[in-house]
Design a protein around this nucleic acid. Structure first.
Length: 628
DNA sequence: GCAAGGTC
């Protein structure tokens, strides 16, 4: 009898895709009692080498199998002092709704010679793989464990992954295990402490959960930080010099190289020297080709940022809609950090699928008729998923309003990626007037290219500059002082917040939108509309509670050496660096858990000791300010 | 009633 091999993917969609490729399309699909999404696919496959021809069962989990929680006697909120959660015993258990999935793996392992793990090739994937291995081994202690290494589900790539398996990376799995334990202990300890302490303080906080999370709080911190900058902003006056020349009926405004200065007397003096010189001299005339680059292949973070900006949907809605489009098979997997299209993907055949569209079919035709360009190559690759792209065409009347918007964006972005940059010509004229330098710029757009399909980018010709000769002298039509003052920054918008989270390593592509939704749900922040109509933008403004928490924690650690406020991304970043050390093998999981717990425990102890500062801040904003 | 990370 042929040897049996069990393959397990991270999600049903990958199991199906891989099974389809390995089986060449002829496989048996079996459903599993107790679970809706997971299926077992049975087929034969020749793995080559030592394995040879095998009978295969390909199945999947649905993300993580297990969860970590405190032992029973620590679960009640008043069962123990919150601080003891830093040491309280924890246990890992298969989630209730995942029990049939775990059982399926144990059963299948029993008759299998080997387990091939097909989870995503990222850190969480290695951990999920270790959970799968644990189940398989408890069904069959002697099962041999291998890991398939793949970064997309293109056929040849999948076949190679099957024939050249590697080992599971326990270091990465350990790093995730450390993160899971830390998030649980720290989140629960601070959440219980602040909830129990603050609930009884003011009536509006009764019944409320005042959660703390290592991602939630820095996210809140960004919102409060911007809010305070807006609130404390003091406008400052400045002065500049503007020079205008009217030639060929065109008004040319020259901009000052110094832009502006905050000293009126100095600017006046500089202007007088210009006027005294009477004539300005053209020092440089430059015409050169320029281009506006087509966008990079689409990542999740970019989808959320661009989506909030142009589709007027918040990031969580965008992800929900994108997921629906993915499940229906219209677009590729929407959670990806990759902005490089693998060489093996047949992009032209994807363009071809869009030919029938009323809106952009004609544009797709032109790409196939010779205007197609290989997409730009970004700097990110998560080695698990390709950039987000349309998989097939769908008629707009089969989609709901939001689905239509997101699908259209994904398609236009994809076609833009496969297009040429927009081309133009800039002209620059530089003049010296007295001692000061000024310049004027003009732009002519010559070829719109990708702009024709990517309606979200704007690049337009400015007024044409009249002809200038290098070395020529002219007398400006006008030269005078301009006056202005610095303006306050705006409140944070969602795309800006996602950008900040991304830059500071807060959350992942899949969770950033959830963290933002969480701090809204907790009523730490609220959204307001700035402006009206089509140009209105959603702004994030902290509530009184949100400001109070950040100010309270900032006060708790103020003046203490080495203690960083929980509202800053610093502690989370530190944790991330330690996880990388586990992956590199320079630290163990136990070391990192202890070190990070020590770090957070110190803040915890300060918080307990100076809890009045947290309470004072809440009183200040929730009682006094609310009354005034 | 707590977290963040997978995925449906």
């Amino acid at each position: 009898m042929a040897r049996k091999i069990l393959c397990v993917a991270e999600k049903p969609a990958i199991a199906r895709a891989v099974a389809t490729h390995l089986s060449g399309g002829s496989m048996q699909t079996r459903s599993i009692r107790g679970t809706q999404f997971v299926k077992n696919y049975e087929f034969d496959f020749n793995f080559g080498g030592a394995w040879g021809n095998c009978s295969v069962t390909m199945t999947s989990v649905v993300g993580h199998l297990t969860g970590l929680d405190f032992e029973r006697q620590y679960k009640g909120w008043t069962s123990c002092p919150p601080g003891s959660l830093f040491e309280a015993p924890v246990q890992e258990a298969v989630d209730k709704d995942k029990l049939p999935i775990a059982e399926n793996i144990r059963n299948q392992a029993r008759f299998s010679k080997a387990l091939f793990i097909w989870t995503d090739c990222d850190r969480e994937g290695e951990h999920i793989g270790s959970e799968v291995r644990h189940q398989a081994k408890s069904g069959n202690a002697r099962i041999e464990v291998k890991r398939a290494k793949f970064s997309n589900t293109e056929r040849a790539h999948v076949l190679r992954a099957a024939r050249e398996p590697v080992e599971l990376d326990d270091l990465q799995a350990n790093a995730v295990a450390a993160r899971i334990e830390l998030d649980l202990r720290i989140g629960a300890a601070f959440t219980r402490l602040q909830t129990l302490q603050l609930q009884t303080l003011v009536a509006v906080l009764q019944e409320k959960v005042i959660s703390y999370g290592s991602c939630q709080f820095p996210t809140l911190g960004f919102v409060v930080d911007r809010y305070l900058r807006v609130k404390n902003f003091k406008p400052e006056p400045f002065w500049g010099i503007k020079v205008m020349l009217k030639r060929d009926d065109i008004k040319v405004n020259f901009l000052w190289r110094r832009v502006h200065l905050f000293d009126r007397a100095a600017v006046t003096m500089m202007l007088e020297r210009c006027l005294a010189a009477k004539q300005a001299k053209v020092t440089k005339v430059n015409q050169k080709p320029t281009s506006k680059w087509r966008p990079l292949p689409l990542t999740t973070v970019d989808l959320q940022m661009m989506g909030s900006r142009f589709l007027r949907l918040d990031s969580q809605t965008i992800m929900k809609v994108a997921e629906t489009l993915y499940t229906k098979g219209y677009i590729s997997y929407p959670r990806t950090e990759t902005d490089q299209f693998d060489k093996a993907i047949d992009l032209k055949s994807l363009v071809e699928k869009q030919l029938q569209d009323q809106g952009w079919g004609q544009y797709a035709r032109e790409l196939l008729d010779g205007k197609f360009r290989t997409p730009r190559w970004g700097r990110h690759n998560d080695k698990a998923h390709p950039p987000i792209h349309p998989v097939c065409w769908v008629s707009p009347n089969q989609l709901q309003a939001n689905e239509k918007k997101v699908y259209e964006f994904v398609v236009r972005r994809f076609l833009a990626c496969c297009s040429d940059d927009a081309k133009g010509q800039t002209s620059e004229v530089e003049i010296q007037y007295g001692e000061e330098m000024f310049h004027a710029n003009g732009l002519i757009v010559l070829e719109r290219n990708y702009l024709d399909v990517y309606v979200y980018d704007k690049w337009e010709s400015s007024q044409r500059l009249p002809a200038f000769q290098r070395g020529e002298l002219f007398e400006p039509t006008e030269a005078n002082i301009s006056e202005g003052k610095t303006t306050a920054p705006n409140y944070l918008t969602e795309p800006e917040l996602i950008g900040l989270m991304d830059a500071n390593g807060i959350g992942t592509d899949a969770t950033m939108a959830e963290h933002i939704a969480k701090i809204k749900e907790r009523e730490y922040v609220a959204t307001h509309n700035r402006g009206g109509g089509r140009s209105s933008v959603q702004e994030l403004i902290p509530t009184r509670l949100g400001v109070a928490l950040v100010e309270g924690y900032d006060n708790v650690v103020a003046g203490l050496p080495n203690s960083v406020s929980l509202s800053k991304p610093f502690l989370r970043k530190e944790m991330e660096l330690r996880m990388l050390e586990i992956c590199a093998g320079t630290k163990t999981r136990q070391d990192v858990v202890q070190e990070s717990l020590d770090m957070y425990r110190e803040v915890f102890i300060h918080t307990q000791r100076r809890i009045d500062m947290l309470k004072d801040a809440c009183r200040k904003y929730l009682v006094e300010e609310a009354a005034s």
